[in-house]
Design a protein around this nucleic acid. Structure first.
Ligand SMILES: NC(=O)c1ccc[n+]([C@@H]2O[C@H](COP(=O)([O-])OP(=O)(O)OC[C@H]3O[C@@H](n4cnc5c(N)ncnc54)[C@H](O)[C@@H]3O)[C@@H](O)[C@H]2O)c1
Ligand SMILES: NC(=O)c1ccc[n+]([C@@H]2O[C@H](COP(=O)([O-])OP(=O)(O)OC[C@H]3O[C@@H](n4cnc5c(N)ncnc54)[C@H](O)[C@@H]3O)[C@@H](O)[C@H]2O)c1
Lengths: 182, 182
DNA sequence: GCCAGCTTGTGAAAAACTTCACAAGAAAGG
DNA sequence: CCTTTCTTGTGAAGTTTTTCACAAGCTGGC
């Protein structure tokens, strides 16, 4: 068992916050004891949609793409990278851990054949918008975008942007504030 | 010149929001015209602490470290990766684009000699906490942490965590909600 | 079977954030 | 110089999120 306070401790929040958040999905704690770790874990996996595997295509077999492909936590949680696509002839025909790198021209075919629902976009900024549009048109429902551009896509396609420069800027901002206070 | 509405359009928010946010740093628009692009850009750079360079050490010369080192937007904005550190003897002694990869044992010495203020931590989860503590003790003020652990550090050290698995989970959560609605 | 000790679940209060809406001001054109 | 047009800056209103605080309820020990 684990109490809301213990969870809050780890997550960097308060017990009340944890309880309020969890209560919005029903009540699965036991008063006086806390939350059962296994049921809680199972419930959170359900909420996050991790109880079934997701077919993922990686578009862009560059440096960040390579790091992401090697990242074991994606597969752990049911995200299956079933295809890797690139435009570089030097890369096409190669393979990463058994997954072939294919020509990005095959994007639509691959999405159809493999029932790809999520695309990880790790291509240069200039290529991101057209590729996102092609993916969306081919039936992809979600895009995790690493290119530093705001994608414009039809309603119904979920986009999540990762901008690592912003993460560093948040740090320099915080440090500047500190400096200003002294 | 650019209006709050035009900025909002690009940022995915509303004009009122942009104006409220900017107004908290003073008033540097002109009524009837909008904001001057150059002064606005300069002011935002100031707010974010980007008007002076930051000395950065990259700890962990693995796949994600390599991608980050090659990422031009860091240097663009004044983040200078002045040192790369690793523990792997096969990597130590090598160099990336002229920056030598040094033994992580030299962390404290490098932080002192190069006036490193920010560390990018790209090491396995098990190594992150002790390295963060060493960096903090050596005088590092901010840490951008890619390892999937919550670092516990003394007050005054800024930590920013990047968790890419969470970004994918946010997508699967959104897609699951969609499925549930139908 | 009852009591003591915990911890949840949740209304109510407080705080934070966003939107509204408009007076104040700036520029451009006559 | 005056009028029209445009857009900021900002109080006030509205909404969302967080915190407070405590009754309800479970468990283990006696
Ligand atoms: N490297 C990083 O740490 C980092 C961090 C954050 C964001 N990003 C962003 O991620 C993207 C990729 O960065 P990277 O460092 O991996 O670059 P990279 O140059 O190493 O890789 C880009 C890959 O995309 C491929 N590509 C180019 N155009 C294509 C197209 N039209 N279709 C398919 N593939 C195409 C290239 O052949 C290459 O393999 C960039 O937008 C970059 O700004 C990178
Ligand atoms: N690869 C990804 O896309 C990705 C994404 C998100 C987070 N992460 C996290 O980033 C970290 C690094 O991932 P990676 O894929 O680059 O792993 P990696 O194995 O490619 O690289 C890790 C590097 O750290 C070095 N290292 C290990 N222990 C060290 C120590 N004590 N001191 C100094 N260096 C040490 C290793 O020699 C290696 O060079 C991990 O914590 C991982 O979970 C990776």
């Amino acid at each position: 068992m684990v109490s809301s306070e213990a969870l809050a401790e780890r997550a960097g929040t308060t017990g009340a916050q944890v309880r309020k958040d969890l209560s919005s999905f029903g009540s699965f704690g036991t008063r006086g004891r806390g939350y059962g770790v296994d049921p809680l874990h199972a419930r959170i996996r359900e909420i996050l949609g991790l109880t079934r595997p997701w077919q993922v295509a990686l578009v862009g077999a560059g440096r960040i793409g390579s790091a992401l492909h090697a990242y074991p936590h994606f597969r752990d949680r049911g995200f299956r990278i079933v295809a890797i696509l690139d435009m570089d002839p030097a890369k096409i025909g190669g393979a990463w851990e058994g997954t072939p790198i294919r020509d990005v021209g095959e994007l639509e075919a691959v999405v159809g054949a493999e029932s790809v629902e999520i695309v990880i976009l790790a291509v240069p900024a200039s290529a991101a918008q057209p590729l996102a549009e092609r993916a969306a048109a081919a039936g992809v429902r979600g895009i995790l975008n690493f290119a530093p551009v705001r994608l414009r896509l039809p309603e119904g396609v979920e986009v999540n942007n990762v901008n690592l420069a912003v993460e560093l800027e948040a740090l320099s901002h915080a440090l500047s504030l500190e400096d200003a206070r002294r």
